[in-house]
C-alpha cells in the first residue's frame, strides 16, 4: 500500500517545528512502527535525518511509544498501543497525520519524542508504599478479596504512556494519577498512607502544569489498557476524605 505521511518534525524543544510530507510503501502485516522503520530507512539512504520516536518493547507494555495518529493517541484502534497497531487498519492511498503527544507538561524533545518525566515526579511524590526491603511479613498474612485484587490490578495495569494526557482536551493527567492512587488505596497495605499519598500526588500533578479534569472521558477511550474513569472518582473520594478527615499536617 502507498501512504502519504504528514509527520511532525521538530529539531528540539526550542524549534518551532512543522509537518513534513513523505511517501512510503508499506504492507498490511507491518506494525505502525515498522512502517516508520521503513520510512527511516528511506531517509537514511537519502542521507537525511530519520524521524525520532520513542519505542522499545513493541509488545504494548513498556509504554514508550507516544504518537498521535490522525488525531488519536496510539491511533484508531481502541485498547491498542502504536506498536501493536497494524497497517491492515489503513487503506492504500491514505494520508496519515503523525504528531507527538502534545501538552504543556510534555515538552517535545525531538520530532515525535516528548519528555514525560513529569509522570516520574508524580510517582516520586507518593506513588508507593513505604516499606523497606526485609520488613515484609508473610504474603498470605494480608488477605485481599479476589475482587479487590482484581480491581487494584485493573488500575495498576497502567503503562504510563501518557495517552490520557494527550487525548484530554484539558491535558489533564488525572487518569494516570488516579490509577496509582486507586491501585494503592484499594489494598490494605496501601491504605495506611492513602491520605498523605493523595495529597502529595495531586499537589505534584498540579505543579507539573497538567490541566483539570472535566470528565470528558477521552482518557479512558484512548487508554491502551482501558483504565476506567471510575478510578478518577476514587481519587476524588480519597482526596475529599483526606482534606476533610485527616489532621492538617500531612
Amino acid at each position: 500500500m502507498k501512504l502519504t505521511l504528514k509527520v511532525w518534525r521538530q529539531q528540539g524543544p526550542n524549534d518551532k517545528g512543522g509537518f513534513a510530507t513523505y511517501q512510503v510503501e508499506a504492507n498490511e502485516h507491518m506494525s505502525f512502527l515498522e512502517m516508520l522503520d521503513v520510512l527511516n530507512q528511506q531517509l537514511i539512504e537519502k542521507k537525511e535525518e530519520p524521524v525520532a520516536f520513542d519505542h522499545d518493547c513493541r509488545e504494548g507494555i513498556c509504554g514508550a511509544c507516544s504518537m498521535v495518529i490522525n488525531g488519536q493517541p496510539h491511533g484508531p484502534m481502541q485498547k491498542t498501543t502504536t506498536c501493536q497497531l497494524h497497517m491492515r487498519h489503513f487503506k492504500d492511498g491514505d494520508t496519515i497525520y503523525i504528531e507527538p503527544f502534545r501538552a504543556q507538561a510534555f515538552p517535545v524533545v525531538k520530532d515525535l519524542v516528548v519528555d514525560r518525566s513529569a509522570f516520574d515526579r508524580i510517582i516520586q511524590a507518593g506513588g508507593y508504599i513505604s516499606v523497606d526491603t526485609g520488613q515484609a511479613q508473610d504474603g498470605n498474612a494480608i488477605l485481599i478479596p479476589k475482587e479487590t485484587a482484581s480491581e487494584a490490578f485493573d488500575a495498576a495495569t497502567c503503562i504510563g504512556c501518557g495517552a490520557c494526557v494527550a487525548a484530554c482536551p484539558n491535558a489533564s493527567a488525572m487518569l494516570f494519577v488516579s490509577a496509582k492512587i486507586s491501585h494503592l488505596a484499594l489494598l490494605p497495605q496501601g491504605k495506611i498512607e492513602a491520605s498523605r499519598r493523595v495529597q502529595r500526588m495531586v499537589k505534584q500533578m498540579d505543579e507539573e502544569g497538567f490541566g483539570r479534569c472535566s470528565n470528558v472521558t477521552a482518557c479512558e477511550a484512548e487508554c491502551p489498557k482501558g483504565i476506567s474513569v471510575s478510578h478518577i472518582a476514587r481519587m476524588n473520594r480519597e482526596f475529599l476524605k483526606s482534606v476533610f478527615g485527616a489532621p492538617e499536617a500531612v
Partner: peptide, 13 residues
C-alpha cells in the same frame, strides 16, 4: 513474594 505483596503488587488471589 512477601516483599512484593507489601509493596502492593496485586498478585492473583
Amino acid at each position: 513474594i512477601d516483599q512484593a505483596v507489601a509493596q502492593g503488587v496485586p498478585f492473583a488471589r
